[in-house]
């Protein structure tokens, strides 16, 4: 398993750069990955979504929730999520929150 150093901490990551051990995550790591993803400042709304994903991940085998689960759980609309995390909100939040990306079923 590959490792990389983010915000001064060495963490395990997969081929796509997603962290594989959610417990290694810190808020500082979240801020640094967000910057890499092109989000310069994490606002309260960003944190609301990140915190929600972190809180539900244990019940989803460490994976981040789907877009629909996020909109239902946070009352933030899909349109707003695309404004907060442009291009792919579900994947982007998963990356920033140190979680596995949401997986689809066959």
């Amino acid at each position: 398993m590959a490792t990389r150093t983010i915000a001064g901490k060495t963490v395990q990551v997969n081929d796509e750069g997603f962290m594989t051990n959610p417990s290694e995550w810190t808020k500082e790591i979240g801020v640094e990955i967000a910057t890499e993803e092109g989000i310069a400042t994490l606002t309260d709304a960003h944190w609301k979504v990140i915190d929600y994903c972190r809180s539900t991940a244990p019940s989803l085998n460490g994976k981040s929730p789907t877009l629909r689960q996020i909109t239902t759980g946070t009352n933030i609309s899909t349109k707003e999520l695309f404004a907060l995390f442009p291009k792919g909100p579900a994947k982007k939040v998963a990356h920033i929150a140190g979680l596995g990306k949401p997986e689809g079923c066959v």
């Binding site: 792919g88 994947k91 997986e103 689809g104 079923c105 066959v106």
Partner: peptide, 11 residues
């Protein structure tokens, strides 16, 4: 909405 043609990488 997927990143490719299918949900699972090999397929």
């Amino acid at each position: 909405p997927l990143s490719g043609a299918f949900t699972k990488p090999i397929a």
